[in-house]
Design a protein around this nucleic acid. Structure first.
Lengths: 225, 225
DNA sequence: CCTGGGCGTTAAGGTTTTATCAAGATCACG
DNA sequence: CGTGATCTTGATAAAACCTTAACGCCCAGG
């Protein structure tokens, strides 16, 4: 289910969006100012954001920059008609699209679909096989060779997913922490050690001699066979 | 240089776009109907397309679908005001953005920049091959010809990275020390000797007769084959 | 022939980073 | 409200890494 974060302080707009989006099977969360919008983006990891530029507490482009610092989640911006320069500033700050109020719900929904579609360009090989187990990204399953599911906790799964999507490539500790725990946890590298160890215990044939979940000391981890 | 394909049959718009885009250092090509637009897209491989929906020969969404069949080049659509359903159809067909005529050139340019930025996440050419090994900057990996990873420590990587990014060029000791250890270490040329030696031991077929990591006495080092 | 500077090599010490374990806190669910 | 699973946090031992210093080589210049 696609998760949408709406950042807007006008109750009528929030209400309209919530109803329409929920009816179309989006999962909607709402923030009513910039600061809580940034917090919500970090916490909820929405698949797409709808952001009103006329927020009470901070400039819309600041919010965009705040999110763009660590995430490439698509951002669709809302603003009143005629603010040409604002449009330009928002797009240059990293917004993906722009809708003028009052807007037609159909248009907004179409732009939303377009944004989400653009953002997910990875319909590639959702199944990765190694010599000892198979990871099915789409089905969220790990199957041991010779049969038998390996069950992972949500955090373990997220971590494995990031590594597998970048298989062969080194993923820095920062990036892992950011993508799994959020930008506020960039320095909590202990979490990584604990969870990498758990994954190794579940996946590796010899957990003390990791073959698939490899450590690159001082840099990060790498999934590879 | 970014290549833009404009598909529009209104001479005044074509002229305005050509002037403005050329002035901003885009390379502009033009087609005046849908059929030649599709042909031009296939032939020129533009980095981004600007497409007017009101073409004489075919429906705009058909053009979009035609391009989307084989390419993910960003498409920005132009159309007259008020055709709400047309917007929706175009976005759903695979357009990336939508601008209503009459439009402000600033806005169009901003949307163009946003579209190009989204589409090109990889500006680098991060793989360098020599006769004995391959350096993949993005994956932070060195692979020996004949298979087998060579693992490097963080400092070794940084040093190798600076040299490889400047391959063929002489890099002074100062520059290396500054980029790897920081400006305070400009004179610690002993560090360089230690780490260059380590890299040679790991990479060179004959470490005592360096072929890829060459010393330029009194000056610095050079990566080359 | 001697001397000194630049470079290559090596290895020990100290520091930082990582693996592993275990217990307390928190969350989800009935 | 209780229970089990999951997540956080801290401690400790092991491993990897960086720094530093010493020594030898080569070559140019005195």
């Amino acid at each position: 289910m696609t998760r949408v974060l709406v950042v807007d302080d006008e109750p009528s707009i929030v209400r309209a969006l919530r109803i329409n989006l929920t009816a179309r099977n989006y999962e909607v969360s709402v923030a009513i100012d910039g600061a809580s919008g940034l917090a919500a983006a970090a916490r909820d990891r929405p698949d797409v954001m709808i952001l009103d530029l006329g927020l009470p507490d901070m400039d819309g482009t600041e919010v965009i920059r705040g999110v763009r610092g660590w995430s490439s989640t698509p951002i669709i911006v809302l603003s009143v008609w005629g603010q040409e320069s604002q449009k330009v500033a928002a797009l240059d700050a990293g917004a993906d699209d722009y809708v003028t109020k009052p807007f037609g719900m159909d248009e907004l929904l179409a732009r939303l679909r377009a944004a989400v579609r653009r953002a997910s360009p990875a319909p590639d090989e959702p199944v990765v096989k190694t010599g000892h187990f198979t990871v099915d990204l789409a089905a969220k399953r790990v199957i041991r060779d010779g049969g038998g599911d390996i069950s992972l906790t949500p955090t373990e799964w997220q971590l494995l997913e990031v590594l597998v999507r970048n298989r062969g490539r080194l993923v820095t500790q920062r990036q892992l922490l950011q993508e799994v725990w959020g930008p506020a946890y960039e320095t909590e590298s202990n979490y990584l050690r604990v969870y990498v160890a758990q994954l190794r215990r579940k996946l590796e044939p010899e957990p003390s001699k990791p073959r698939y979940l490899r450590t690159e000391p001082g840099m990060g981890y790498r999934f590879g066979d």
